[in-house]
Write a protein that binds this DNA or RNA. Structure first.
Lengths: 146, 146
DNA sequence: AAATTCACTTGCAAATTGCAAGCAATAATT
DNA sequence: AATTATTGCTTGCAATTTGCAAGTGAATTT
């Protein structure tokens, strides 16, 4: 886990509990799916996120991207090769969500009848290696599609 | 992780992705907080859940408890010593959420200014031991307040 | 110059949330 | 035995959030 400075005097929270902080930042039906698409599918642009398997609406996507930026989980930068595009990237904080994502995937895979067995097996066989690979791919912001 | 039978032909999901399954079951502002209160604070009754730090509304609590039951994460049984009460318990599936909870707590604690440092330190110092302790406490449904 | 693509925004209906109040069943108190 | 309190909800209703469809404007391609 990387050590970025903690947010001081941040947004008003319902409680001081760290789990509640996570839930307030990520506890909805879309935010983690966007992070998934960045981390696992290498998505970087608004248009790509729209293609997510679950079919997010355009206004919700824009809203969630803003909130993820506000929470320091992703950043947006103009694409130098196309002035219309923004390139979204995971911050260190965003990359640190990899263990959360992994545990959620393993939990669902263990108890529900879900797909993407290749990913699940990879996670099961060597969780540490899988996490290292994700961190490696995003080092120096040079992520490419897997 | 325990091996309960997977749900077959379960509820309609937006996609087959295991992360999406988790998000559909847990991706709201309350469900995981209820699980936290059971797992970490030993709460077992409706009234106790109402006392959660974040102040859940009565109708939302009833709704979330029903959904957690429907998803096989908790169960409800009448209290033999008080006919008004129901005793809620974590299922094996619910106990298996401990790693998810742990990673979410550690992530928020690393990146936000949150409280409950005792819990966080305990998780940081020996994650495995902490998880074992939770599983042990819930073994044979004999959980008691920590 | 015209058409297309991209990243949104806007309107509006439907669903969800949150607050306050009420209610039936059981338990405790007088 | 009658009254009061507690428990686990449900109901009504207003406010917020979500989701769909249809724009909009700047940048790019043709």
């Amino acid at each position: 886990m990387s050590n970025t400075p903690r947010k001081k005097s941040g947004p008003e929270r319902r409680s001081e509990c760290p789990l509640n902080a996570s839930v307030e930042m990520l506890g909805d039906r879309w935010s983690l799916l966007i992070v998934r698409d960045m981390m696992l599918r290498g998505f970087r642009s608004y248009k790509e996120f729209l293609e997510c398997y679950e079919g997010i609406a355009t206004n919700i996507l824009a809203d969630r991207l803003h909130k993820l930026i506000a929470n320091g989980i992703i950043t947006a930068a103009p694409d130098p090769s196309d002035g219309r595009k923004l390139i979204y990237s995971l911050t260190a904080k965003g990359i640190d969500l990899a263990p959360v994502l992994t545990e959620m995937v393993l939990w669902a895979a263990a108890h529900e009848d879900t797909g993407n067995h290749a990913l699940v097996c990879q996670m099961q066989n060597d969780k540490g290696k899988f996490l290292d690979a994700i961190r490696e791919r995003w080092k120096s912001s040079g992520a490419r599609r897997p």
